[in-house]
Nucleic acid binder design. Structure first.
Lengths: 213, 213, 213, 213
DNA sequence: AAGTAATCGAGACGGTACGTCAAGTCTTCCT
DNA sequence: AGGAAGACTTGACGTACCGTCTCGATTACTT
């Protein structure tokens, strides 16, 4: 995506060319990088964010601490990379041709992602950390959220193109209304987010859109 | 509310009789308790959750570490108490006689609380920590959330009694829809929550309720 | 003697009528005092001086910490009392009418006391502590050593009276020569002190005395 | 003796070649080691054994606590090393060709060492601690005493070779008799050990040896 | 007999040091 | 040059005891 290829951001190389204008000087070890991300992921799942340590990650990854400090700033930074690597492919909304269906599926997928998947656990840990760490918050919003936001917007945009949804709709607010309750339940109240909830959210949203018109 | 209200130990005899026939001879120092809560509050505001340490709180409060460990389990536990003490009086919805007004005011107050107040900063730190610490999560939900949830419900209940709102409305879901987007912006996207947002949320909610009917 | 009757010194009341029949002025609890001394003794034997704590003694004795601090200055001070109470009756030299016999028996008793008895363990712990604590050293020498020194001197004095030993003998030096090697082995080298050793010491001493004459 | 002589861990390359194909890459900091020993020595002299703490040593040495705990087991263990480093060169008996002279000088040096020197203060503290700590006692006897014992024996051995002293003499007992009273005065009675005392001890010992013959 | 005063067991208090853990830095050797 | 290893300083952790303090109960001497 971006040439910065910022190892700390990881993502980057899926394009594959890997032409990196003139190469990465003296070669970062891709092997070490993956080992670290995997170790971090595994440890998060096994012992929880609070118990994860840089030393633990290094030991589990079979990597020197220095190698970690050379490329990442904190354990949260590592998890950011892990999240970007693991989770981007998920949460791509379907294209069924119907806004209601698209949203129902997408919201349901989101709920599943947040509550059931390993990547969701990473996400929750990161959001937790974001409350304490403004630098991480920046990176989280720049590297993850804005991208996800664009993806989330797709069903609505498609619906507008199809003429189902009015042109003037405030998409950001719409997304807040659709997604907010889900994140709220997951992050704050800790309540489950079954399909009935997501379906009802979509129903309410559609009803409101109709009423709007 | 219950008299104990659930501080970590409560000393809580505000009822006052203090008839305790002879028990509890060695009482907790109320002075130390308040000093700790204040120190924790202040430090959170000054240096942020991550930089707050038990040692720092103890030093600032002029209290022995053991005294803290005797009564609290973690720095988050201390902040829980601080939150319960500081914030309970806030966020009580008004009673204007109109659901729309009540909600607009209440949501705006909530947004202000979350983004502007010291207690809101404590709340955000706690929600962050809740993502990493299941024990804290329990306490957070038992001691704070359920109480707040009941308070949040009041405008809707009053509206039902007035006959404005249908009896069958799912109040929990309604609250998720009204509050979720606000928490989402505060905790996840980091966007501000101006009055326009809260007002629009209320408008949408009312429109949906009408459509429902 | 002294009105304080120095409980912390325990012993001390021999001057006296010891009418303590019931009236101890304003009542120190004799029961507590004995419980503390016994607890200290027991704990020393069980876990060693380093692991003995005032809190541990108080708990074991079923006594409040304050009670201990009221009457003693340190755990070593308690053990001083225990030593004075337990050990004074030991180490009284016999009177066989013969200097050699008296000394052989006495030195052997001393060796046994130092290496085998519980009171000897207390003594060793106190000598250890004396190296670190000048205040204790004072008390140790004033209350225990000078007394014991006088007792140790008895066989030599008797022998002088009997005409066996020359009047001019330096008794202090003689005692250093007789006792020093025993304490040295016990405290420094950690070697055992069997009867052969003590007997040989006596033999050497007597030979030297003869040669002197 | 070798300059390395057996610090608590040494690193032990006395074999020397250090061919270790690749092992032991991360070596102990000699600088930190010396700083710790000096700090411990100084603190002992300044504030006394009881007041010396590991934290204090670390702070004074400008060293992390962990570094101390990595290489030593206790403050006494540190002082053991300091003693071994500082004191081994002292207390080597002279060779005047005459047993009496040799012993008089050596005993006098010993007395001076024990009562006047900084290393002597360390020694006294260690002997004190030896009464409470069997592990230290072991190390004290293995690493220090046996070595010193051999050195102390030298004048007697030389005298035997010269034919002055009988072959059958029990050297260990002889040393106990010569040294015991000195240690006794220093460690137990706290009396000074002037030259008259040491001289008289030697005189008595020689007289006894003559009488023996 | 009631009042007074000192001691008692208990245990919370402000502290100090403990011994451990992890942070982030630095140095060394290896590849 | 990058990476694995690990010793280094730093600082917080949570615990154990220190010595002081207050509490309510007990008990022996006033009065």
């Amino acid at each position: 995506m971006n040439k910065d290829s910022g190892f700390s951001q990881g993502i980057g190389e899926e394009g594959g060319l890997r032409t990196r204008h003139h190469g990465n000087r003296h070669r970062r070890s891709e092997e070490a990088r993956r080992a670290v991300l995997e170790a971090a992921d595994d440890l998060l799942a096994e012992i929880g964010f609070a118990a994860v340590t840089i030393e633990g990650i290094a030991a589990r990854a079979g990597v020197g601490k220095q190698t970690i400090y050379r490329w990442w700033q904190s354990k949260a930074d590592i998890l950011m990379d892990a999240l970007l690597e693991d989770a981007t492919q998920d949460l791509i909304p379907p294209d069924t041709g119907d806004l209601g269906s698209d949203l129902r599926i997408h919201l349901s997928n989101l709920a599943k992602f947040l509550t059931q998947s390993d990547a969701g656990a990473v996400f929750r840990a990161l959001v937790g950390q974001v409350q304490h760490d403004p630098v991480l918050a920046d990176r989280f919003r720049t590297d993850y959220l804005t991208r996800q936001r664009e993806v989330d917007r797709i069903p609505l945009l498609r619906s507008i193109e199809r003429g189902q949804l009015a042109r003037g709709v405030d998409l950001d607010l719409a997304l807040d209304q659709l997604l907010g309750p889900i994140y709220f339940r997951v992050l704050v109240t800790g309540q489950p987010v079954p399909r009935e909830i997501t379906d009802t959210l979509v129903k309410g949203f559609l009803k409101e859109m109709e009423a709007e018109a």
